[in-house]
Design a protein around this nucleic acid. Structure first.
Lengths: 350, 350
DNA sequence: GTACCTTAGGAAAGCGGATTCCTGCGCTAC
DNA sequence: GTAGCGCAGGAATCCGCTTTCCTAAGGTAC
């Protein structure tokens, strides 16, 4: 082999081996060459093959600032909600020939900020922050400032599920979906309904809660604070919230979990206690994550077209806005949730 | 604002605003400056703040070749098996201050090859190909050649679940786990057992199948080819394979799915047909993915410590091998699967 | 007061590749 | 035979940043 001391093969190595100048080698490799003799061309290609040369992407990006990657900031890809979202994002990114860089923030605002900087440093073509926003004015200000600086430099931003963040947006109908969910249970005749909510700081939590409350108002029911438990948006969070709720509020006939993952946890907790679902207590979730149909009883929930949302967000991020639009107006796409009735909700006992 | 025409803020802009040379600005920003007057230092910091300057990572990487990112090639992050693996990988990567670039190959060998090139181009510090290998000598040769070129240039490679690939490895006990699984069912008394397998080209499929066959031999049972159905390693693949199996082999008392996802699909198919599990037919899976315990009946399966495997692989990739070892000897860590008995397997009826 | 040393901070040289600008060759045309 | 032109392919510049090298100012010692 004829590469440099570092072991890395560089364009110069290829050129030397093919006995041409770096310019010619570059031209051949990039197919950019209208006029390169066939003989030289094959010599260069041969050298590339033999040396297994791969151009240094950083050098390329420096020389010809053509952004190719896109960044996504999610809570955790292994959470099914984000896994589905990411799948949609991924697909569209791939269709555009873009590499997707996935960053897990684990819902740490500090880390989200860091990741925006990192993605900015990486010169990604677009950043897609996905997942709930925070009730934290200081953070939002910081986050927006960072994002705005990025946009100013030509970056594109599309968020999923956040209001009050600059950039285009895909926003799920959290309030409305929750309203549907509440309606469903109230119409079934439930009076004492418990709620298993995610962290209070998340806008997703408060938005969904708002929808529930509106439904309660419309149906003349109560949703007292003591019947609302806040915990992590996770299976275990759902389980422990369910246990607490059952202990403190023995008369409940239904539990609304603010996402499916928590609902699954609740189901597990109830099963462990020997409480029959839905005969004794109904349980409903939100999101319609894939597992929702595989647990027993299958979850009644609100379907959010997660993959589709991901696709749309990435499309917003990658398709430049119509230049005739006034530039600063972000494009917002609302997506509605719809109720999916399965086996976990039924009229209250007796 | 005082940045260049492109809108991107560069080091030079910061320097100009702070009225210092780029060298000084760089020194301040990198904390690299043993001797920079406090006055200048604060002036630079102020300019950075005001301009929201973020250094161009590509330029930095070019100037000081300090690899910081690591790449992972998985089938699909949204598949729970890989989601768990990735979680482990992510954690260790983050602990080392590394950015994780996740690539979905969708089990397309061609795409895997492309991704290795891409990661190589990105100058990542390590590449972790995760998931089943292929029975495809040509591909393996190509893949190894690519990887070897990468290692030659100082890159680190750690694979998960592949033999015959260069680099360090974490290998799950597929054969042995399957043996345990077979043993479990045979000891329960099952005679006619069907198998739902993944694609034939995957080594995971053949390895697990081999374990099953060994168990069959040891217990004097048959595992005829007609009772083995090959399909996608997916929920729907599992469902359709289960349906076929039930149609063609009515007398089965147990179904072994070669991964949990397929088992979940099989469960759904059986439920739809009104076949009671485990009373009429037992169903077992493999991997012990999170949903396994939440389906009903909860799956009896083989637990693979997925998160742990991810962690170990990333550790292998990031911790340089003991220099006293002879260099070319890859480090291989075997991890055993263990049986988890839940509710989906029971003795055959009557 | 002069010679020498220290040190802050600026100038310049890459890092690896793309691209613009040249150069020199071979061809056509008069 | 010579002028003019086209074109292949090499030299040089630049991308944004880090870092080495160097300069000049200030300080110390005699």
């Amino acid at each position: 082999m004829a590469e440099g001391p570092s072991g890395v093969v560089r364009l110069a190595d290829v050129a030397r081996r093919a006995r041409v100048s770096p310019s010619t080698a570059s031209r051949v490799i990039n197919g950019n060459a209208k006029h390169v003799t066939e003989a030289l061309r094959t010599r260069v290609m041969k050298a590339v093959e033999e040396l297994r040369y791969v151009p240094n992407a950083h050098a390329q990006l420096l020389a010809r600032p053509q952004r190719t990657a896109v960044g996504v900031i999610v809570h955790d890809v292994s959470d099914p909600y984000f896994a589905e979202l990411t799948r949609g994002l991924q697909r569209v990114a791939a269709d555009h020939g873009r590499l997707l860089v996935i960053c897990n923030s684990y819902r740490d605002p500090e880390r989200e900020l860091e990741y925006v900087e990192l993605l900015r440093a990486q010169q990604v073509a677009a950043i897609v922050p996905a997942g709930s926003g925070y009730h934290d004015a200081k953070f939002n200000r910081e986050f927006n400032a960072e994002l705005r600086a990025y946009q100013q430099a030509g970056g594109r931003v599309a968020v999923i599920g956040r209001h009050d963040i600059v950039g285009d947006a895909v926003v799920p109908g959290n309030e409305n979906g929750a309203y549907l969910l509440g309606t469903e249970l109230f119409q079934l005749g439930h009076q004492r309904v418990g709620v298993i909510a995610g962290p209070r700081v998340l806008t997703t939590t408060t938005d969904r809660l708002a929808g529930l409350k509106r439904a309660a108002r419309d149906y003349g029911r109560q949703l007292p604070a003591r019947r609302i438990r806040y915990d992590d948006f996770s299976r275990d969070g759902g389980a422990s919230a369910a246990v607490e709720l059952m202990d403190r509020e023995p008369g409940l006939t239904a539990i609304i979990a603010l996402n499916d993952t928590m609902a699954v946890g609740a189901l597990a907790a109830l099963r462990e206690r020997g409480v029959a679902v839905p005969d004794e207590v109904s349980v409903v979730g939100f999101d319609d994550v894939p597992i929702a149909r595989d647990v027993t009883p299958a979850l009644t929930t609100i379907r959010l077209p997660l993959v589709e949302m991901g696709k749309r967000a990435m499309s917003l991020a990658l398709d430049a806005p119509d230049p005739s639009r006034r530039p600063r107006a972000p494009r917002v796409q609302h997506v509605a949730g719809e109720i999916v009735r399965r086996a976990s909700a039924a009229p209250p006992p007796r």
